[in-house]
Every structure is written in C-alpha cells, then in structure tokens.
Amino acid sequence: MLELRLVQGSLLKKVLEAIKELVTDANFDCSATGFSLQAMDSSHVALVALLLRSEGFEHYRCDRNLSMGMNLGNVSKMLRCAGSDDIITIKADDGSDTVTFMFESPNQDKIADFEMKLMDIDSEHLGIPDAEYQAIVRMPSGEFARICKDLSSIGDTVIISVTKEGVKFSTAGDIGTANIVCRQNKTVDKPEEATVIEMQEPVSLTFALRYLNSFTKATPLSETVSISLSSDLPVVVEYKIADMGYVRYYLAPKIEE
C-alpha cells in the first residue's frame, strides 16, 4: 500500500514539467526515504535524478519499496488536470498495475480521482559517486535559463569556463559568436539574486545547449541553480526543491577527439 499526500500539489506538476522533455518513460521508486526517480535520456547523454523526501509530504505511507513505471507524458497529462492550489495524493495498492492521482481543492469542495495504467520499464540504475568538483557556480535560475536560451540562438554548444574572474559562457555559430561573463556578486538585496563562485581550480568544459535548455524547464522549482564542474565528470545542474529534495541533471561533456 502506497499513499503520499502532498499539500503543495503544484510542486509535483512542476517536477513533471521539468523532466518530461528529457525522459519519456521512467520508474518512480518509493521507499521510506522518499519518492525518487533516476533516468537517462534516450541517447544516454544526460541523466536526471529526482528526490522528494518523505518528510516533505503531509502524509507518507509506503509499506514496502515499490517501483512504478510510468510514461511521463501521460503523468503530465493527468497532473495538468489538478488545480495549481490542489492537494495531490498518489495512491497504489501492492501488486496493482495502476496508480491513482487524487486532487482535492483547497476548501475540499471538489475531489477528483485519475487512475493511470502502470508499465513495465527495464531501467538501469547507475551509481553516481560523490565527487569533489573543481568549481561550483550558484546563480539565479532565471539568469541561467536566459543565458542558455540566448546562446542557443547563436550556436549549438556552450563552453562554460570558470576562473577567479567569474564564469564565462561562450558559443559560436554561422552568424557569429557570443560570450557572457557573470562575475561573483554577493552584494545583492536578496540571497537568491547572488552569483557565488566556489573555485578550487579553473575549469573549462563544452556542452550541448539543447540539453541545458531542457534542464531549465526546472526553473519554476527554484529561484537558484547550482552548476558543478570538473574536467573529468558530467556537469551537475541542480535545482533544490524547498524542504523536500532536488532535481539534478547530469550532462556528459563534449570531448575533443
């Protein structure tokens, strides 16, 4: 028996919008720790890891570990039927081949049940080792989204370079080139508007902008994003979900031949 009640149902709606472009089908894993997902895109270039900790739910019952295969487009269709202020409850019986999403309006005058068929998905779980990153950049998520969108109108790839001067995003295409430098800026009114660079040593890596743009679908989940870079590792682009967990995207770099 599984029953997860999330008062801030809009969070789940945003989570689906954040991952459905990258991944088509995925297993949602439910355990005492929380509600989680790990999945790669079809070309195995990017990986998304989601965690919603059990403590973040108003009610969390998961009698035994359960893995539920879902088509994310279909989940998104179902969740789009929930109002933005609705309370969402996810329910599944042991051994059932369906999951139920229940939507309650805030004043309880409307209750809807949407039952969705589950699917068998062969997914590979990958071990992601803890790593020391050469540089971690924290910046407003909207700013990062804007940079990725702007650069993708010029080129297909971005070189992200971190030095003590700041973080530079560079691209080149048929019509020209572009460079955007963001300097560390801690002297802002609100901490979420700051750009903070923690650098152990300078690092420069090249990534496909198409994937980074896809990651920015998570922007509504968090006002800030952190970008962790090391020369021999995929970049980690993390959006924290307040009090609950995170959506982390891993993207393999482009490698010079």
Partner: peptide, 14 residues
C-alpha cells in the same frame, strides 16, 4: 569537432 560524451562512460550500472 568535439565528440559528445556518454553518461554510461562516467557512471556504472549498479
């Protein structure tokens, strides 16, 4: 040209 890396060459299956 740079070649696109693959996640599976960085993270191993558990």
């Amino acid at each position: 040209d740079a070649k696109q890396g693959n996640i599976l060459s960085f993270f191993k299956k558990t």
